[in-house]
């Protein structure tokens, strides 16, 4: 089967500009691996094992902060639960696709791929497949490269710059940019407040208590708002 090069070119052209905002994120992951004191190769392997920035950063920074591995794993998995929505939304489009693609496609189903793929769901199956894999693996290749770059930069950056502070700043940016209604702001505030109040719990499990409280608060407000 010949690959339609025009579709590949268009896909790469769509993917690269969307990747630009992810570049600092990937560099921070590389730096966080150095800061956390995990083996660099093991830390970088999260880029292809997980291929999800927020979950990678969660796992790496929590482990670096001395969190029990099980709690860090739980937190990273909760962070990535939003992908369930993407999976459900794209499932109909994947139904007339071959099995190999239904197995491979989800591996690269990151936020940007979801956003672009939803715009293409009406195209014919072969064109969709070409487009999806082209954007997916463009993002994948860029992500592997720039996280490796961040890892290489990590030891070069002086400790006195306190670049690890970029992690909470980045998370704060993700929260604020994602806020499109007041119930989400409430979820964030309750999540932060309860995590602070439960900071004394063993293994930093307060993080999960806080996250759960935030999710419940947002849900309650959404449900009972007049």
């Amino acid at each position: 089967m010949a690959v339609d090069r025009a579709i590949v070119r268009r896909a790469v052209g769509d993917a690269v500009p969307l990747y630009v905002p992810a570049i600092p994120f990937s560099l921070v992951i590389g730096l966080a691996i150095s800061e956390a004191g995990v083996n660099p190769l093991a830390g970088w392997s999260t880029s292809w094992l997980i291929f999800g920035g927020a979950a990678q950063l969660t796992l790496i920074t929590l482990v670096g902060a001395g969190t029990a591995l099980a709690a860090a794993v739980m937190a990273a998995l909760v962070v990535n639960a939003r992908h369930l929505m993407y999976s459900a939304a794209l499932a109909p489009t994947f139904q007339n696709q071959p099995a190999w693609f239904r197995w491979l496609g989800p591996y690269v189903l990151i936020d940007q791929v979801f956003a672009l793929a939803m715009l293409e769901e009406k195209t014919d199956p072969v064109a969709f497949r070409t487009y999806y894999l082209s954007i997916g693996f463009t993002f994948w290749a860029l992500w592997q490269s720039t996280t490796a770059l961040g890892l290489a930069l990590g030891p070069v950056v002086p400790d006195s710059w306190n670049l690890e502070f970029a992690v909470p700043i980045l998370f704060l940016g993700l929260i604020v940019i994602g806020l499109d209604k007041s119930s989400k702001a409430a979820a964030a505030l309750v999540g932060a407040g309860v995590t602070f109040l439960t900071a004394g719990l063993p293994n930093r499990s307060g993080l999960l208590v806080g996250a759960l409280a935030g999710i419940l608060a947002g849900t309650m407000i959404e449900r009972f708002r007049p």
Partner: peptide, 13 residues
């Protein structure tokens, strides 16, 4: 609400 709640908890953590 997963993303805002968890990310905010992470900032504090």
């Amino acid at each position: 609400f997963v993303a805002p709640a968890v990310l905010a908890a992470l900032v504090v953590a």
